[in-house]
Nucleic acid binder design. Structure first.
Lengths: 349, 349
DNA sequence: CGGACATGATCGGACTGTCCGCACGTTTCG
DNA sequence: CGAAACGTGCGGACAGTCCGATCATGTCCG
C-alpha cells in the first residue's frame, strides 16, 4: 500500500505486467488473455484504482489523430424551405460562423449540408455522413418544425439551434427571448418610455410558445408605472391594422420585427426618436439601422458547437433521455430609433 | 513546416530552446527573459501553434498534486441559510445525488462544502479548494441571490443550479418552469378542467422573473375555451386570503406550491378529486401525495456535472463571457388530487 | 583580488493513459 | 517440414506543466 493513489504503472509493476497490458485489460480489449484480464481487474478493484479521466481523454484523442491535423468534422445541416424569409439567411450564416470558429479552436471542422426540397434527402444525408465518418450534427433553425427522425441517431450526436425540436427531441441552443425582452423593457423604462407596445406576427410568437407576449405581459403586470398597451399580434403584416392599433393605444415605443413599422409610425405623426421609439427584436434580421436586440447568432453557434463536441468527447450518440435547452441572453444594441439616456451598459443580463 | 500541427517540442527545437522554456514563455512566466518570451510568442503566432487544452488541464493537475492522489473532484457548495424552508433540503440532496452519479460515470468524485453563516467563509473555501486541487464547483440553489464573487475564479469553473446568478455570472442549469407550466395546463385542459387558478408566494415567482405567472397568463390568453382566473400571488400564505379568492373566482383546479391549500379548498366545499383538483408545482418539496410537477433534481444535477466536466476537460476556468442557462422540462407526475382521464404519456415535453 | 552568496535564465526529469507496430511463442495447414 | 496465421504481451512516443537542478553572471565584503 503506497501513500499515493495507484496508477497504471504501479499496478503493472505489482502484477509483473506492462502498463500497456494493464490498460488494455481494464478497458476490455480483446488483445489480452481473458484470464489475465480478470486478474488485472481484481487487483485494480482491490487497490482502489481509478483511472485519470483527463489523461484518458487526452491520450485517446492524441493517438487517434496522429499525423492528421484536425481531429473531427461536424455537419451543419440546413433545411431548405421555400417560404423562409430571406432575412433569415444572414442569421443562419452567423450561426455557422460562430460554430466554425469555436469548433476550430477545439480542433474540429464544420461542413455544410442542405436538406429537403432543393437539397439532399434525409436518407442520402445519412449515408453521406456515415461514409464520411461524421458523427456530430448541428441543425440550423427551420421556420416550420424540422423532421430528421429518419436519421440513424444511434450513430449521431445532434444539437438544434432553436427552441424546440421534437423529431427527434435533441438538446438545443437558443436565445433567451423571455429574459431578453424583460431586460429590454426595463431599459426602455429607464429611458423614460411609459407605454411600450408589442407588434408581432402570430407565427413568430407561437413558435416560441408565446414567450415574447408572455414576457411583455409579465412586465406590464409587475411595473405599476407602466401603462398597459395590448400587444398587436397579426397573421400578416399590414399597415392598416398597425395604424388602427397605434392611433388607438398611442404607445410611445414599439417593439417588433417588422422595421417598416418605423415609417408607419411616422405617417401617424410619431416623432422618432424625440418622442417615440422603435426597438427591433432581432437586429440580425434587418439591414435598417435601429435600436434593438442582437440575438447573438455567433455566440449561439459557438455554444452549440461546444455542447456537441462535449458529447462527442464523451462518446455519446443518440437521442438524449432528457433533452435540455441552453439559452443565452440577447445583447442590447443602441440605434437611431431611440432617444438617448444615461443608460450605459452594453449587456442585457 | 511540418505536416502535423506544431507542438511545444517542435517549436522548441526550431527555436533552439527547451520545451520548458517555450511553455513558460507562452504562459508569461516571470522566469523567462522578456526578450526570449517575445521571440517565442512571435514564433508561436507565425507557426500557428495552438496548445492542447486537454494536455494543459491534465498536466497542471498532475504537477500540482505531485505524489498525492489526483483524481477529478468536483465541489458541491451549499449556502447555509437560516430562513430557508426545510423542504428544500430534499431538493438539494437529490441535486447532489444526480451530480454524484453522473460525475462518477465520467470518472469524477463530488465533495460537499457548506458556506456562509454556519459554514465556511468564502476565503476559507477558496484556500481549501486550491490546496485540494479542486477546480470544478457546483453551486446549489440559494433562496436569496448567492455571492461567491470573492472566489478566485481564474482558477475555477462553476455551474449554478438555479436560474440566475450574477455574482459571478456563471452558466446555470435549471428547470424550464415556463414550458413545464404550459404543458401542465395543456394536460389539465385535456382532463376537462376549464378554470385553472394559480396560487403563489410572491418571492417564488419573483426569483424566476415571473415565469410561472407569465406562462399562466400566456396560456389563458391563447386558449379561448379557458375562463380566465386571476392568479393569487401573496406575500405570505394565509388561509383567509386563499378562501376569499377561491370563493370569488371558483377555479376548478389550483396550481401552487403550498399543499395546505388542498384542505382549504375542501373547507370551501370543493370535491377533490371528483370535481376539483390540485397540482403541486414542485413535488420534491412536499411529502403530501398529490399530482404535480417533478422538477427532476437528479437530472438537473447530472446535467450540471456534465457541463462542468466538459469545461474542465477544455481546461476552461473563469467567468464565462456569455453565461448560458440550460433548462430541462419537468416531468408530469400523477396523483390522487386530480380526476383521471385518458391522458397517457408520462413525459411533459 | 578572491571567495561566498544572490540573482537570473534555462533546462531535464517525471508524470498521466492510449494506441500502433513489433516481437515472441504456439498452432494450423498445405 | 516450412510458412503462414494467430494469440498475447511489450515498448515507444505523445501532450504540457511544475519542481528542482544547473550554470553563468553580478555583487559584496574581507
Amino acid at each position: 500500500m503506497s501513500a499515493s493513489a495507484p496508477t497504471l504503472r504501479s499496478l503493472a509493476k505489482q502484477l509483473g505486467l506492462s502498463r500497456t497490458t494493464v490498460s488494455d485489460a481494464l478497458r476490455g480489449s480483446p488483445r489480452v488473455d481473458p484470464k489475465t484480464a480478470e486478474r488485472v481487474q481484481k487487483a485494480a478493484r482491490e487497490a482502489g484504482y481509478r483511472r485519470n479521466p483527463l489523461a484518458g481523454a487526452l491520450m485517446s484523442e492524441l493517438r487517434r489523430s496522429r499525423g492528421t491535423a484536425f481531429r473531427g468534422v461536424l455537419a451543419a445541416v440546413d433545411f431548405t424551405e421555400p417560404e423562409r424569409p430571406d432575412a433569415a439567411a444572414r442569421f443562419h450564416r452567423e450561426l455557422v460562423v460562430g460554430a466554425e470558429t469555436r469548433a476550430g479552436e477545439l480542433g474540429f471542422k464544420v461542413e455544410k449540408f442542405a436538406v429537403g426540397h432543393a437539397g439532399l434527402s434525409v436518407q442520402r444525408l445519412d449515408s453521406i455522413l456515415q461514409s464520411r465518418g461524421i458523427h456530430g450534427v448541428i441543425l440550423l433553425p427551420a421556420w416550420d418544425e424540422p423532421d430528421l427522425s429518419n436519421l440513424d441517431w444511434t450513430r449521431f450526436a445532434g444539437i438544434y439551434t432553436d427552441y424546440i425540436i421534437e423529431r427527434p427531441a435533441l438538446h438545443s441552443v437558443c436565445s433567451d427571448h423571455y429574459r431578453s425582452l424583460l431586460a429590454a423593457l426595463q431599459r426602455l423604462a429607464s429611458l423614460g418610455y411609459r407605454q411600450p407596445g408589442l407588434f408581432l406576427q402570430r407565427h413568430q410568437d407561437e413558435r416560441l410558445q408565446f414567450r415574447w407576449g408572455a414576457a411583455f405581459r409579465a412586465f406590464q403586470e409587475n411595473q405599476p408605472e407602466i401603462r398597459a398597451v395590448p400587444p398587436l399580434i397579426v397573421d400578416a403584416y399590414t399597415k392598416e391594422a398597425f395604424v388602427r392599433w397605434f392611433k388607438k393605444h398611442q404607445p410611445d415605443v414599439v417593439l417588433g420585427h417588422h422595421t417598416a413599422a418605423i415609417d408607419w409610425m411616422a405617417d401617424c405623426g410619431a416623432e422618432i426618436p424625440e418622442r417615440h421609439g422603435f426597438v427591433c427584436l432581432n437586429k440580425n434580421m434587418t439591414t435598417r439601422p435601429c435600436a434593438g436586440l442582437d440575438l447573438q447568432p455567433r455566440t449561439l453557434g459557438a455554444r452549440g458547437a461546444e455542447l456537441l463536441i462535449a458529447q462527442l468527447q464523451r462518446n455519446e450518440t443518440g437521442i438524449p433521455e432528457w433533452p435540455s435547452t441552453t439559452t443565452i441572453p440577447a445583447r442590447w444594441s443602441d440605434g437611431p430609433t431611440l432617444r438617448t439616456g444615461n443608460a450605459g451598459h452594453a449587456r442585457t443580463p
